[in-house]
């Protein structure tokens, strides 16, 4: 009887120990709450952190662009302040007199005729009209310019005719461009010149917009061209 009791007691103890061991093992229900927490954290991370980090990266990009713009504007300020205002005003007046904002056909013809008379040439034919010229057509960025253009024909001695042709560059107050110059001998000392002459102007009606981020080039970089234009302007002033 005592043996039976101890056996049953041992059995009970073993059962109790097994139950204890089983109780210490992790069950599925133990993971439910942690899994829920992890899912919530991941959702928060993706829905909140990722957009926040993207925004911050965009802010950094924008910051870089803003700093680049600041540098551009600082350089522009330095370059513009280097240009002396009085000289700029004087040069602007000079270049506008040489390449005016408008060139009347009548003024242009008058100028050519006066020049021809100076060279003792007789007029064969002269006419002119407004035209749009594309200059630098073979270049990457051809420019459109406005001008007054017309065929002319004069006759006189060879020396006078050649002098007339050169005077377009040397003594012309305007910027003119002769094309298709045809020189033909009529008699021993009479030559006829026929050409197409264009006088240029820049129409200020096309308003230039102020864009501070446009690349800035000071006009003082073109000193030789400015010098030529100044001389032409001085000639115009002397004639007037």
């Amino acid at each position: 009887m005592i043996g039976n009791t101890s056996q049953s007691r041992t059995k009970k103890e073993l059962e109790a120990i097994s139950k204890k061991i089983e109780d210490t093992k992790l069950k599925l229900k133990d993971f439910v709450f942690p899994i829920i927490i992890v899912v919530v954290l991941l959702l928060v991370a993706f829905l909140v952190f990722v957009p926040m980090i993207n925004n911050a990266i965009n802010f950094r990009k924008e910051l870089k662009e803003v700093k680049a713009k600041e540098k551009k504007l600082e350089d522009l300020k330095v370059a513009v302040e280097k240009i002396e205002e009085g000289q700029l005003n004087r040069d602007l007046i000079d270049v506008k007199s040489v390449i005016p904002k408008t060139l009347k056909v009548s003024s242009f013809i008058y100028y050519i005729d006066e020049l021809a008379k100076e060279k003792d040439l007789t007029s064969e034919s002269i006419s002119a009209g407004d035209v749009k010229v594309i200059a630098g057509a073979d270049k990457e960025a051809p420019e459109d310019y406005k001008g007054v253009n017309g065929p002319l024909s004069y006759s006189g001695s060879l020396e006078n005719v050649l002098s007339f042709l050169d005077s377009f560059y040397t003594s012309s107050p305007y910027i003119v461009s002769p094309k298709n110059i045809n020189l033909e001998s009529k008699s021993d000392d009479e030559w006829e010149v026929a050409l197409n002459l264009t006088g240029y102007y820049i129409d200020d009606a096309e308003v230039t917009r102020f864009d501070m981020y446009r690349p800035f080039k000071p006009y003082t970089d073109f000193s030789s061209e400015i010098q030529m234009l100044r001389e032409k302007a001085n000639k115009l002033k002397a004639e007037n």
């Binding site: 522009l76 513009v80 602007l92 506008k96 910027i175 200020d204 501070m212 073109f222 061209e225």
Partner: peptide, 23 residues
Amino acid sequence: IKGLSTKVLDNQEVLKRVYLYKN
């Protein structure tokens, strides 16, 4: 820079004519 806009525009006007002359 807006305060210097007149100078910049004048410079552009001169440059237009310089480029025409060069062309």
